[in-house]
């Protein structure tokens, strides 16, 4: 469990303090490696799918929109999954889950980069004047862009060396993930023409994840 303790910092510190019965509670370092490798490969599937569909010329009538939306959706989804790790860990007692958090968070960043790149390249063709106008004039673009910018320092400080260097500030910095998630969902909410079903689903998931944290804090669960 040394690895997860190193990764989780504060949150993973007491990883072994509350052992619960069950086969999945104790996981060896070897098993964690395997689980991480599996998650790594699974998380690549949305990209693989785009590449395959692209080569099969099967991205639909509006391929640019398809690619942008797909990457945006997956960035948001991975952000939600990342935020689900801590509540899941506390509820199930599967403390090793924290070992997946950095990987999942980096995938959220990865798909956000692809989302941003597909917008800058495929949608705007590096027309910086038009992009600047778009960001300044349209609030959904602005909040999406802000969320993307805020993700950059998180990704840049995600390695062990930076964690050590930042010490206690690391966790403070990484609390940015909450406003980022709110901005991301708002971005989706504001761009939809009329049918808000999907943004509402994301908003509800996010609200649930944030509520879990509030409850844990109130009850003083773990820490």
């Amino acid at each position: 469990m040394g690895q997860s303790a190193a990764l989780g910092r504060g949150e993973g510190r007491k990883a072994e303090s509350k052992p619960k019965p069950g086969i999945w509670v104790k996981v060896s370092a070897q098993q964690i490696k395997r689980i991480k490798a599996t998650v790594f490969l699974l998380a690549l599937l949305p990209l693989v799918r785009l590449v395959v569909l692209g080569f099969m010329d099967n991205l639909g009538a509006n391929p640019v929109e398809f690619v942008i939306h797909s990457n945006g959706t997956w960035a948001l989804t991975f952000l939600m999954i990342t935020l689900a790790i801590t509540p899941l860990r506390k509820i199930t007692g599967l403390n090793w889950l924290v070992a997946l958090r950095r990987l999942l968070g980096l995938y959220a960043f990865f798909y956000a980069v692809l989302h941003f790149l597909s917008y800058v390249w495929l949608d705007q063709w590096f027309d910086w004047a038009s992009i600047t106008k778009d960001v300044a004039k349209h609030r959904y673009v602005l909040v999406g862009f802000a969320a993307f910018l805020c993700l950059i320092p998180l990704a840049a400080t995600s390695n062990n060396a930076m964690m050590r260097r930042l010490g206690g500030n690391w966790q403070k910095l990484h609390r940015l993930v909450y406003p980022i998630a709110i901005l991301g969902v708002t971005h989706y909410w504001w761009l939809v023409k009329k049918d808000l079903t999907q943004p509402i689903v994301y908003a509800m998931v996010l609200a649930l994840l944030l509520a879990c944290r509030a409850v844990f804090r109130k009850k003083g669960v773990d820490r």
């Binding site: 099967n58 398809f66 797909s70 959706t73 989804t77 999954i81 689903v201 994301y202």
Partner: peptide, 18 residues
């Protein structure tokens, strides 16, 4: 199902359903 998982359009994308 999609709502429960919190993954909606990413998995079931319109283009393939067409």
């Amino acid at each position: 199902l999609a709502a429960a998982a919190g993954l909606t359009s990413g998995l079931i994308h319109p283009a393939e359903a067409a």
